[in-house]
Simulated assay, not measured.
Amino acid sequence: MTEGQSIPRNLRHLRLLPAIAEHRSLTGAALVSGLSQTAVTHALHKVETAVGSALFDRNSTGAFPTDRGQVLLARVRRALDRLDPALDALAPGLSRVVTHSQLIALIATAQSGNVTLAARQLGLAQPTVHRAVTELERAAGRSLFDRARSGLVPRRACLSLCRAARLAFAELDQAEADLAEFDGREGGRVVLGALPLSRSNLLPAALVAFRQERPETPVIVHDSRYEDLLAGLVAGEVDAIIGALRDPAPVAEVEQHPLFDDRLCFVSGPGHPLTKESAPTIASLVQWPWIVPRLGAPARRQFEEFFAKHGLRPPENVIESGSVLLMRETLRQSEMLGCISGWQAAAEVQHGLMTALPIQPDVPARQIGVTLRRDWMPTTAQRRMLDLLKEAARNF
């Protein structure tokens, strides 16, 4: 597989690969698929041409996957295992007729709620997208959208199919990376969701080490809200989320792997009046304005529980932010107080940019780690990034 070549997205052709491997012959694959042997031979030739090598060794005893064929087969099977149950739940036999183009049109329409916007997003003509969605609905024997004044509202079955299709297509993207690695090239990309705590020390250290080892592999870091990152993770658009783990795990589709424990830290700017008091009280903390994590974050929950534990209402004069830079500069220019990860605060305090308050929260340690999609199979590059995150956590 040379530069510029990619896995073809003709689902009917890709479905033939597991059939050929299972029956060890093109004739057997033709029988179970309802195609002629000539059609199967032609389809296999197109796939092999696209990936740049033979995928099966064919001789008098049968057809057997090559080493490269095994690499691709593993991902194709995973893709179909994700896609076909959702298709067959809509209509028996739908998996035999649905096309990649139809699914792409469905996903774009469900995301935008409008066929015209979906067509613009895909760079296609509006009738083309409309026809693809209509043909898919006709094959399924049901409508996949409710028509409302606001646009097209995807039904539950539609959302389920879109999610399965995105996961299937993510597996095919992974296949391209796997084949590149098999050929001795850097392949694929790494997409990380970075929660506030990971951005100051842990992730930068891992990224620097990763870039030294793999100078050509693209890395994309998203620093969105946890809920947005989680949605991307479940849909196969984000590989891993790094930051505070949730207890319990938010959805059954993910698994959490701890890296280290962290405790909250109360800080101020250098020279704050509270740092000069010999014995400040917990009640005195409520009188000051604060910068705190946003509602719903584990650290915010612990912040509020700390005051409740001591019979006090949490401070109400707060700014919500997860940015260390914003907190540092705001504390430096004011007499506000900050609630931050102790792990993050350590470097700021060490350099004299923040000061740890005489009173610190007596709350349990939080687990910091990596959240992954359950049953995810990382590429070589993705696995290496996870290893480097573990190494970085041990070094801090």
Rank of each mutant, 00 (worst) to 15 (best):
L389K: 04
D239Y: 00
H100A: 12
S278L: 10
P196S: 05
R120F: 03
K276W: 10
D362L: 11
N201E: 13
L372E: 05
D146Q: 14
R374K: 14
P358K: 08
P358N: 09
T281A: 11
E135A: 13
V238A: 01
L179E: 02
Q256T: 06
P273C: 05
H100S: 14
A347Y: 09
R149K: 13
V267T: 06
A283Q: 13
S95R: 11
R383W: 04
L124Q: 13
G352S: 08
A279Q: 14
A19K: 09
E176C: 12
H257Q: 10
Q126D: 15
L87A: 03
A119E: 00
V40Y: 02
E304H: 04
A252T: 11
Q287K: 15
P248F: 06
V98D: 01
P18W: 03
D387G: 07
I291N: 01
E216P: 08
T38F: 08
V40I: 08
L274E: 04
L72I: 09
L17F: 07
A381I: 02
A235W: 00
A279E: 15
L386M: 11
G34C: 07
L72A: 03
G151S: 05
M336I: 08
S25G: 10
I368W: 02
P8Y: 08
G322K: 00
L122Y: 04
V40G: 01
L122M: 12
F396P: 11
Q360C: 05
Q102C: 06
Q350S: 13
A308L: 15
L16W: 01
I7C: 08
L103C: 06
S53R: 13
L83E: 00
